[in-house]
Design a protein around this nucleic acid. Structure first.
Length: 253
DNA sequence: AACGGAACCTGAAAGC
DNA sequence: TGCTTTCAGGTTCCGT
């Protein structure tokens, strides 16, 4: 699930696989012959910096993942791109094709438009409050707006709001200082948990068919709330499926 | 300006 | 069994 934790894991993988190595083959000619200098992340975007100021921006979309292979290994099913360097072959596999790869020499508009990253920028309650203030909208929609805060997707938002005992429909301008503090903590906890699920070079995407849902409320509508046993509800907010507990998540309007 | 809905693309799971 | 519908971790565009 490419939200902040998975993308951070992908960043670390790409760094381990490629940093310090010269690209010998790639989906884009501009990358070949250049050395990978660093791999950074903001929100759900990864930026690979190469020598001569060449930049590669990568977004995993909904179903993207990077896999480590050897240069001689056959093409993966749904493989969309590859970067070979120093005997490693990084393959971008993305069934739904929502992922993006952009080669540029300057930061792209999409990268520059990103709001603060909860991990890279150590977003505290005060900063979060400032980002949410100003407009009246459903707090879940605000959290998932990449210009407000970057890296939060449907799962993180759902889990963070449950942690904070806040109804996803609550209006941002109705939140109390205590609400924002709870939300900040809840978001950090959800991210830390997501990061803890990431292991190894590809275990990150171990969402295999038989893998059990590791989340508290996401994808569990109809099941009893782990906190108060009220059946979890499912609504659609901003076009996205939203699970929450009508019993213990308070609605501010 | 804001909001809902559709589109992009493909597969898995559920429904009949 | 097999055909149809619904849903999915994200973003962007379009019309009201």
């Amino acid at each position: 699930m490419p939200e902040l934790p998975e993308v951070e894991h992908a960043r670390g993988c790409l760094e381990r696989w490629l940093r310090g190595r010269v690209v010998t083959r790639a989906f884009a000619r501009a990358l070949v012959g250049r050395r990978v200098e660093s791999v950074t992340r903001r929100g759900k975007w990864v930026r690979v910096s190469l020598s001569d100021g060449m930049l590669l921006f990568a977004h995993l979309g909904m179903t993207g993942r990077w896999m480590r292979r050897a240069p001689d290994d056959p093409r993966e099913r749904w493989e969309r791109a590859r970067i070979d360097a120093g005997g490693v072959s990084a393959r971008l596999v993305d069934p739904r094709r929502f992922g993006k790869l952009v080669v540029a020499r300057t930061d792209t508009p999409a990268w520059r438009a990103l709001g603060p990253d909860p991990v890279a920028d150590r977003l505290d309650a005060r900063a979060l409050g400032e980002r949410l203030r100003g407009r009246s909208r459903a707090v879940k929609e605000a959290l998932m707006d990449q210009a407000v805060v970057s890296g939060v997707g449907n799962i993180l938002a759902t889990e963070a709001l449950w942690n904070a005992r806040l109804d996803p429909r609550s209006r941002t301008d109705a939140l109390t200082v205590a609400d924002v503090r709870a939300l900040s903590r809840g978001l950090r906890a959800a991210i830390a948990y997501g990061l803890s699920l990431q292991k190894g070079d590809d275990a990150a995407y171990a969402q295999d068919a038989d893998a059990e849902n590791p989340f508290r409320v996401y994808g569990r509508s109809g099941e009893p709330c782990p906190r108060c046993r009220t059946p979890l509800a499912r609504i659609v907010l901003g076009g996205r499926s939203t699970t929450f507990c009508p019993g213990c998540q308070v609605r501010r309007v």
